[in-house]
Write a protein that binds this DNA or RNA. Structure first.
Lengths: 257, 257
DNA sequence: CGACGTGTTGAAGGAGCTCAATCTAAGTGG
DNA sequence: CCACTTAGATTGAGCTCCTTCAACACGTCG
């Protein structure tokens, strides 16, 4: 267990988005026991069906949640960016309902599940923040279901790109209209319920239309409004807007204290 | 606010599935302030974008969560059966990311959000149970995404029917292989990301194959194994199995007390 | 009885899939 | 530094699952 308290700052920053944390809450979070681990490209952090003993906080790199079918195909049901507590779901339930893997080499802080439960249930503001973190994950998941169920390929890709832009910008990892995300076309296809070939055709068509362009894993959005309109993108489901939550935090503190 | 403590028993039964609740926890749950409300067929309990002041516990009837796109189509992202706390998600976050409507006339116990927050954060076992309730919702949501993203019409319908059978049986509302669910074919289509017409063709084909049969809103599954194999159905994502959680409850009590 | 919601069926078209081939660029080893 | 390897991107052709549009059947309920 490391003493480098500063390591957990990305998690703290994320949690402060969801609840008002006082000085003690903040230092309790930073004092959480943890060990650093680096996972090589493509490796598995949590395996579906297992019972994880540690909760993984993503520090650098990108990971994703996936479920596989017996027939070999897979569905990526979510992606994680640095600062995300990757398997809070898996930690509290008796077994993981999905796997977590990394796109590229990634660094994690592994926090023992009992320590996380301890802080969640002794410091109610921290508990609220962690709970909300899982609820926002749920909101994103529902939007994901809508994309896969009711949008065509072009709309799905547009929506996915808008979502990534917003989330990466909020995490300070790029600009909404210009960011890097290390997913190849097969992975994008598995995320959106399409095939890699059709993803390719759609990407090419969007580039040719002047909406976007790509270079390696970099995405550039030239006409944000057109893309957002196409996707019917409304970022409120991400709960990144700090105004509404601020007001809510006040409400919460009243009833909690 | 009613004094009919017994009204909240379905909620208690559901929460006891997720955590060990002692005598005090149980009576605190049953003592939650609430009022009864009956909603007519098709009415809206929570509207997307609103900030609900009450949390709705479904007592009788069936409801569903949905998101609509500007172009008019909708995606049903989940269904609720009696005993479900329908909008825990919406209550803790500053606004609802999705709507909740009822299929048929339904009865709810409306619990004020502050009271629910109060009990969740003063009684940690209750808080854990409520949190887990939302996490299991998330697990079901992920499975839903997989269905819509990676299964064909026949597999989606088979999976949906297996899931409904399991959940209804667990709630004591029917048998896995014979139950009633008041959804018409258009609603099934909106849940599975299909069109009503294709749902109809697929249902007819499954009936003709001797897999299932229907009468009004009753579903009869004649060959469970064939249906489950077709759907690749594995019920573990529902966390209905009480054995594993039992063990986990023990773990939790140790670190919580 | 007629109206309406729901289920059922047909025919035609399209979005996306499968299979297969080719091309490109980032490594890698000599 | 260059030939070689390889993962990934790109393109074509044919096919299928599902959609769309349109019509009709059936039971319920005013």
């Amino acid at each position: 267990m490391s003493e480098h308290a500063a390591i957990l700052i990305p998690m703290l920053r994320k949690l402060m988005r969801w609840a008002v944390l006082d000085e003690e809450d903040r230092s309790a979070i930073l004092a959480l026991p943890h060990s650093l681990r680096t996972f090589p490209k493509g490796s598995c952090i949590v395996r579906e069906g297992s019972a994880p003993s540690h909760c993984a906080l993503l520090l650098s790199g990108f990971s994703y949640r996936q479920k596989t079918t017996l027939s070999g195909s897979r569905q990526i049901v979510g992606i994680n960016i640095p600062g995300d507590v990757v398997d809070l779901q898996n930690a509290l339930l008796p077994m993981a309902d999905h796997s977590v893997q990394v796109f590229t080499e990634a660094e994690f802080a592994m926090i023992p599940v009992p320590a996380l439960k301890e802080i969640a249930f002794t410091r109610s503001a921290v508990g609220l923040a962690l709970w909300k973190e899982t609820l926002v994950d749920g909101s994103i998941q529902r939007q994901w279901t809508v994309s896969v169920g009711r949008r065509n390929a072009r709309e799905r890709i547009a929506h996915f790109r808008c979502e990534c832009g917003y989330r990466l910008e909020a995490a300070g990892l790029g600009l909404r209209m210009h960011y890097a995300l290390p997913m190849n076309q097969e992975e994008i296809a598995d995320a959106l319920g399409l095939t890699a070939i059709h993803v390719n055709r759609t990407l090419m068509s969007m580039d040719r239309a002047g909406l976007t362009s790509r270079r390696r894993h970099e995405v550039v959005i030239h006409d944000w409004d057109a893309l957002a309109t196409l996707a019917e993108f409304d970022p409120s489901y991400l709960f990144l807007d700090l105004d509404a939550p601020q007001e809510h935090r006040g409400d919460w503190l009243q009833s909690a204290d």
